[in-house]
Nucleic acid binder design. Sequence first.
DNA 1: CGCTCTCTTTGACGCAGGTCAAAGAATCGA
DNA 2: TCGATTCTTTGACCTGCGTCAAAGAGAGCG
Lengths: 241, 241
Amino acid sequence: MTSQSKFTVSCQQCGLNELCLPNSLTIDEMDEVDRVVKRGKPLQRGEFLYSTGEDFSSIYAVRSGSIKVFTIDDEGEEQVIGFYLPGELLGMDAIDSRLHMSTAKSMETSSVCEIPFDSIEDLSTSIRNLQMHMYKLLSREIRIDQELQMLLAKKTAEERIGAFLMNLSMRYEQRRLSSTRFRLPMARSDIGNYLGLAVETVSRIFTRMQTMGVLRVEGKEVEILDRQSLCNIAHVRDEEI
Amino acid sequence: MTSQSKFTVSCQQCGLNELCLPNSLTIDEMDEVDRVVKRGKPLQRGEFLYSTGEDFSSIYAVRSGSIKVFTIDDEGEEQVIGFYLPGELLGMDAIDSRLHMSTAKSMETSSVCEIPFDSIEDLSTSIRNLQMHMYKLLSREIRIDQELQMLLAKKTAEERIGAFLMNLSMRYEQRRLSSTRFRLPMARSDIGNYLGLAVETVSRIFTRMQTMGVLRVEGKEVEILDRQSLCNIAHVRDEEI
DNA sequence: CGCTCTCTTTGACGCAGGTCAAAGAATCGA
DNA sequence: TCGATTCTTTGACCTGCGTCAAAGAGAGCG
């Protein structure tokens, strides 16, 4: 594993900086940001990044691995809110209340950059691009949530899973990974929970899509065999490549 | 109607400023904000504030009335994203793309303050509280969306409607209006659309709650007769009064 | 004031997907 | 390497809510 060498990589050297930082920072500005970022030791599968009720002090950028975020409802049931891949930021839902209302759990060995929110506040008054970047990140998060709302309110199980897979595919592609063959870091039960479906339904639809020749599924490994069909099922235009 | 006199009310005089502005602005700072706010003429029922595809330039604060925000999906169907009451801000989902991806429509005669986003960007670098306020507003929007996600993913029709009514009740209370008797500004079909239910289901559950003695419904007028039962149905702790 | 259009309610019926049960398959710790 | 635990799949059955249909009830307009 090279995670030890990545461990101290600066933002300038990090291949993901175009995903989590604004694209037009000067060298000096990026240094300033770099100086406040804390790079902790990797999280093992199942470890928590933060938990419900804890004080909020930082937001986090995933460097490698993947993180699941969920809340606990009144009956003590998990409700998955999102899955975060390398280059994505999480923890921003706690800015308002200054308290984490959700829990972030590592789904595999993951490394994460911690960015104290106070520092972001300070820097974003002096670095105009950083302020805009924060506004955009928050705004994008809202739009992502809204899209999920539409999925949950209106779509059939098949459409939800189709859209979910297309979404993952596009996110992997952005990260220069294969958009047609990837490993699902989360359990079927997490997918079901996230999409408002029973595990059994997720499983059945995976098998059905395999039978239709759209997908090849082998445990957590997925291969998209017929992207166009998947787009049709998901009712997604395949323009955003 | 006194909307003509309210029409030119400054932020200082506006009874809603504690809802839409940070609470610790100096007089001077509030003047600065006040100077960039545009107060247009009231929107009639059915008029649009912005539409999908338009350029984004401002966010909006509802002064009176109520606004429905929705997207149009691939089949041309409306998907209601939210309802906005006086003191609430909308339009922030377009910051990222600089394009409105949703449409805002007035559900009754409403007046709205327009706040150019460029001005907010400028002011929020100099007014620290304003920057923080924006971060908080955006963060809160994310949390509200996440709560709706949980509702849509896991809850029964009865729970959804219970939670919806409790939510409205609390928002009216914040606005110093009755929390037990209010008028629903939206049609049953909008409620159903928002909550992922058929109109018929909404209607049936209203009648059922009336039969149980929890509600009294008369057209758009609603009276909550048994708040505790409604909380139980919605699985909401009634602490936030 | 009456006509039209939209909104709401109610009933009957069917199905997508939930629940229960149980048998593999995979992962993990010692 | 082996048992234990957790995850996944499949089948059978059932139910909450969607759909269809139709009758009121309002609301807006000429």
